[in-house]
Design a binder for these strands. Structure first.
Length: 527
DNA sequence: GAGTTTGAAACT
DNA sequence: CAGTTTCAAACTC
């Protein structure tokens, strides 16, 4: 049982797990008490924020069709009754015999608590410009730790209640699929449950991720196929092969014949050259351009480094297509421009993603911002020492004439000072962030810092609601600060931290706003 | 888009 | 457990 939980925490696991992985960064920002905990690296913070934004949008994206909450399987345990006669009656006896047995289901199914209902599509939030054809096939995916777009199945005969169905196999309801006679829906929950039980009876690991990270796995993967493939004709170099599809080399667990999917295989290398622009690599590139590449560094080095998401750089399938690497002019990783010829000839997704932040945020901006944070910190030190000095002087003169400042009031005053400090430096931020003319404006009007903060906080609330229901960044930052201050850290440190965090939030607010505006512009231009 | 190939899942 | 069938995705034309 704990195996499945462990597997859920691995990076290169099933699609469901990948989806969860995307939240890890952001979840890491809030501890169990909901206190804000910022990761160390600014870029990591930016990524988390951007991911949170993407997630929040998807959560609120209108469903294509009315559909039941996807996770209802976890939310209720329907009374076990035979609604649908099983195809194989002989399997019913053992199944009925284990009624009380807690089923081992895929990570997504196994949670006993009721999760927030999730719409189905949102597994690949950053890939929003896919072509309808691509979506129909639903095959945008990666074989590594990056999120994978939920496939849309086309099942006809399995009623989507067998592992043939990818939706069912990954523990999600069908929604928007092209399947017929689908029972993988909430209204057929009883049947679905029966089928799950039946499959688990046969194979308790059936719903577990097939790919598990392993410290002892292939050197270039850190992951291995739990069961191994059984390929005969594909040489394990086509997506028929589960290992290949998962972007891992075959292991000794495989029973494949004529395997060419091993480390150092010439065929494998040649294959990746030939299929240099396979969809996995391209989507990988696209996703990473949106995430890692949010900070544009138009150097060749960074361009080569952008395809790193828990895998090493020699992982060919996830690298940029060779043709791209050698023929394309250097450009920002954010500038994933449509590459029509490649896409057409090499079987790529017909569209590509270009970050709305492209051209807005450069590495130098981040560097400048870090410098700014240092200044803010120093400013906090000065402000606090001056305040103390004034307090001391006043106390010496006549303590009785000085209105008693409660800790709350003092906190408010510090907060106000900090906010004023933020506002005063707003122009500097605009200089940092708003390369394009109309950044920070909406409908021709500039957005006030308050509006920007609200925009940010609104998204925070939307996203955090699913993760830490009672969390708001501001209040919890303060809570955290207060908590820290009561545990012996110096007030100076607390004040510095608070100001720095507030500055950073302000920075993120503007970054998000700029991205949103740019995105709107791009969408309008596309229309 | 239709037909073929492929290998996992299901079944015997 | 091995062989066969079923199935849906991947692939080809």
């Amino acid at each position: 049982m704990e195996q499945s939980e462990t597997a859920a925490g691995t990076v290169a696991a099933a699609p469901v797990v990948r989806q969860l992985d995307f939240t890890v960064n952001f979840k890491a920002m809030a501890n169990a008490n909901g206190n804000l905990i910022l990761p160390e690296h600014p870029q990591a913070q930016l990524q988390s924020k951007l991911l949170a934004l993407a997630q929040s949008r998807l959560v609120h994206a209108p469903a294509k069709s009315p559909s039941p909450p996807r996770m209802a399987a976890q939310t209720k345990l329907p009374p076990r009754k035979m609604v649908m006669p099983p195809k194989s009656p002989q399997r019913e006896l053992p199944q009925m015999a284990r009624q009380e047995k807690s089923p081992v289901i895929a990570p997504r199914l196994a949670h006993p608590v009721k999760p927030a209902p999730l719409p189905k599509p949102p597994l690949q939030p950053l890939l929003k410009t896919e072509s309808p054809k691509t979506r129909e096939r639903g095959n945008l995916e990666q074989g590594d730790g990056t999120p994978k777009k939920q496939k849309l199945c086309n099942c006809k005969n399995s009623r989507c209640l067998k592992l043939y169905c990818e939706c069912f196999a990954t523990g999600v309801y069908c929604d928007g699929c092209n399947c017929t006679n689908c029972y993988n829906k909430i209204e057929h929950e009883a049947d679905r449950k029966e089928s799950i039980d039946m499959i688990l009876e046969r194979n308790p690991n059936a719903f577990r991720p097939k790919i598990a990270s392993s410290p002892h796995g292939p050197a270039d993967r850190g992951a291995e196929h739990k069961k191994g493939c059984n390929c005969k004709k594909s040489g394990c170099l086509k997506r028929y092969c589960e290992c290949f599809q998962a972007n891992i080399v075959c292991s000794d667990k495989c029973k494949c014949m004529d395997c060419k999917n091993f480390e150092g295989s010439e065929e494998r290398k040649a294959h990746f050259h030939q299929y240099s622009a396979n969809s996995m690599a391209f989507i990988q590139q696209t996703a990473n351009a949106a995430i890692n590449g949010a900070i544009g560094t138009p150097s060749k080095k960074s361009r080569n480094q952008q395809i790193v998401f828990g895998v090493e750089s020699n992982k060919q399938p996830n690298q940029l297509p060779q043709s791209h690497k050698e023929t394309d002019p250097p450009r920002s990783p954010l500038s994933v421009h449509p590459s029509k010829p490649d896409a057409a000839t090499l079987g790529l997704s017909k569209s590509s993603y270009r970050s709305p932040l492209s051209g807005i945020l450069q590495l130098q901006h981040v560097n400048d911002f870090c410098t700014l944070l240092v200044e803010v910190s120093a400013e906090a030190a000065r402000s606090l020492s001056e305040e103390r000095e004034m307090m001391n002087n006043s106390t010496d003169l006549n303590a009785a004439e000085i209105p008693v400042v409660s800790s709350d009031e003092k906190e408010d005053r510090n907060q106000q000072n900090a906010m004023e400090s933020c506002v005063n430096q707003d122009n500097r931020d605009r200089t940092l962030l708003c390369v394009s003319d109309d950044c920070g404006v909406q409908d021709g009007r500039p957005l006030s810092p308050g509006t920007l903060a609200l925009m940010c906080d609104e998204r925070d609330m939307i996203f955090m609601a699913a993760n830490a229901p009672s969390t708001t960044t501001e209040s919890n930052t303060r809570m955290n600060v207060m908590s820290v201050s009561t545990h012996g850290l110096s007030p100076l440190y607390v004040e510095q931290e608070r100001l720095v965090l507030m500055r950073f939030r302000s920075f993120l607010n503007k970054l998000i706003t700029c991205g949103s505006i740019e995105e709107t512009k791009i969408e309008q231009a596309a229309d």
